[in-house]
């Protein structure tokens, strides 16, 4: 199964404080371990939300909101994509992650929907819509 692991933001990460050399080294080793176990299949660190935008929807209206955003604890500072056998394995891997921040911090593990989860909803009309948009793209 595929799991996205979010590194939650902290006041430091929101201020753009870069990780120390020690942390970079520990994280590098950890990433290497993930890669060599065939677990890590993707991931990135994210810039602070001072450089982020939000698009807010309300009915048919859309508005653009500039960062930075409040609720630091709810923000995301980075993510991995892992392929694991089950959530137990994901938890075990997450627990051996070096603390990604200087102070208290949090990882959040979210299983990804696969096409199979959408089942028949995806096989028929919806898939055709996806196909149509691709056909249109191809025609340009």
């Amino acid at each position: 199964m595929r799991v996205v692991v979010f590194v939650k933001a902290t006041a430091d990460s929101e201020q753009g404080v870069l990780p120390s050399t020690d942390l970079l080294e520990a994280m590098g080793k950890y990433n290497e371990e993930l890669v060599n176990a065939g677990v890590m299949v993707g991931g990135d660190g994210l810039k602070p939300t001072s450089q982020a935008k939000r698009i807010a929807f309300d009915g048919s209206n859309r508005s653009v909101i500039d960062g930075p955003f409040a609720e630091t604890r709810e923000l995301v500072a980075g993510y991995w994509v892992w392929e694991v056998k089950d959530m137990d394995e994901a938890i075990a891997w997450a627990q051996r992650c070096p603390n990604p921040m200087t102070g208290p911090s949090e990882l959040e593990l979210r299983p990804v929907y696969g096409m199979e989860d959408f089942g028949d909803n995806m096989t028929t009309e919806v898939a055709e819509i996806h196909q149509r948009s691709r056909d249109t793209l191809a025609g340009q």
């Binding site: 299949v41 994509v81 696969g114 096409m115 199979e116 096989t123 898939a127 055709e128 996806h130 691709r134």
Partner: peptide
């Protein structure tokens, strides 16, 4: 993998698969 079989398990040839269902990742 998830685009190449019908719900009844029969195979869909490559050219007829819904490419929207291919795993871009």
């Amino acid at each position: 993998l998830s685009a190449r079989t019908k719900p009844d398990g029969s195979l869909i040839p490559l050219t007829e698969q819904s490419r929207a269902r291919w795993d871009r990742f």
